[in-house]
Design a protein around this nucleic acid. Structure first.
Length: 376
DNA sequence: TTTCCATGAGAAT
DNA sequence: TTCTCCTGGAAAT
């Protein structure tokens, strides 16, 4: 049940584990078997996340080095444009070279892209050798160290959290689980309906229940990306006046309800049902208000809030929208979700700001929550 | 054991 | 608008 923040996070993790590495690809479930065969033994040369879409580029081993070299050249150009490599290194976690979004990948014919969209209930599951201190070098992504902590087996990585430059995998490795201390790491058996498994010597990633799982060309990848709107998690998005302006224009050009517009992936890429509810609440905007009946200032403020919430979601690894100053203490009995969300899943309970009962109705066949007093 | 539900989205009606 | 696809955990029976 991922929104854009989770996809970007997954892409970064995937990049850290596999970029530059030759991998085995298989389909334990069988439904992706013939396609998996086409990338089995290939090298992961790029990972991208745009909105809720993730793209992974595979190249045959003989070609991977030249592809990666070309990619580094593009990256150097990009760094020069930004006037500093530090600026690139400081970019948020979004997988690899951002510049690839605006330019076709080099050596197009030598590449295949894996396109994954998790839909409503797809998920990734990762496991890795806890002794892996030196994650395979990645293109344009910060180096990360593995720090394994105690926990139960097979917990989803979505609960992992980042801290400075280190990636902490919580609950990912079973404490006390029999592992050969001195020997090789072994991948856990697939659990459930694993459509695709990507495996290296030190890490494994399993996809379950994706809405889309396909191999596409670079051209197709560009077409798919071109249909997506403003992604608040693209590098520098929250500071990018052009993207902010574009979002404002897209919203104000339509008379559909803004609650529909910000879930429209061609307008705001990555926003899902929780961010919709929470951002509109913080912006004080009724989800039913038509896009063309909002001022530039209000839509701009909405964009800023979306960026704030999703960036925090990416950083902490879950969608917790309550700002520190609004955090109830203690959390009211029987209303635990108030510890996380202002509005989402809180219909029939009092608004944290004004006490009005929170409303609920279906919009685009999804449950929509709002405060009829605070939002107008 | 069965039913319901979920942080999607495209196609069909 | 409604249907359809993809899966698994929680809730209801």
């Amino acid at each position: 049940m991922p929104e854009g923040d989770a996809i970007h996070r997954i892409a970064h993790t995937f990049s850290s584990l596999f970029e530059g590495t030759q991998v085995q690809a298989s389909s334990p479930q069988g439904r992706f078997a013939s396609s998996a065969q086409l990338i089995d033994g290939h090298v992961v040369v790029a990972v991208r996340a745009v909105g809720k879409h993730m793209f992974v580029a595979f190249a045959a081993p003989g070609l991977a080095t030249s592809v990666i070299e070309q990619a580094r050249e593009i990256e150097a150009e990009y760094a020069a444009r930004l006037n500093s490599a530090e600026a690139v290194a400081a970019l948020p976690f979004t997988g690899s070279s951002p510049v690839w979004g605006e330019r076709a990948f080099p050596s197009e014919e030598s590449l295949q892209w894996l396109h994954i969209h998790l839909g409503l209930y797809g998920s990734w599951r990762f496991d890795a050798d806890e002794r892996t201190q030196d994650v395979p070098a990645s293109i344009g992504a910060p180096r990360t160290n593995w720090v394994a902590t105690k926990g139960h087996r097979h917990a989803a990585l979505k609960w992992a959290s980042y801290s400075e430059d280190s990636l902490y995998i919580e609950d990912n490795l079973a404490a006390g689980e029999a592992r050969d201390i001195a020997g090789q790491w072994q991948a856990p058996e697939p659990v459930g309906q694993v459509r695709l498994r990507i495996l290296s010597d030190v890490a494994v990633a399993d996809v379950t229940g994706p809405n889309r799982c396909e191999l596409i060309s670079d051209e197709q990848r560009l077409v798919t990306e071109s249909k997506l709107g403003c992604d608040p998690l693209q590098p520098g998005a929250s500071q990018d006046p052009a993207m902010r302006k574009r979002f404002i224009e897209l919203v104000r050009a339509r008379k559909r309800p803004v609650g529909e517009l910000i879930m429209d992936q061609s307008i705001a890429a990555g926003v899902g049902n929780i961010y919709r509810a929470e951002a509109l609440f913080l912006a004080g905007i009724s989800p039913m208000r038509a896009g063309n009946r909002l001022s530039k200032a209000r839509v701009g403020q909405l964009w800023d809030i979306i960026c704030e919430l999703m960036t925090r979601g990416l950083e902490i690894g879950r969608i917790d929208t309550i700002r520190p100053e609004d955090q109830p203490d203690p959390i009211p009995e029987g209303d635990e979700e108030l510890g996380r969300w202002y509005i989402y899943h809180r219909s029939g309970r009092p608004c944290i700001k004004c006490g009005t009962m929170i409303s609920e109705k279906l919009m685009q066949n999804r449950r929509l929550f709002w405060c009829s007093n605070c939002q107008n």
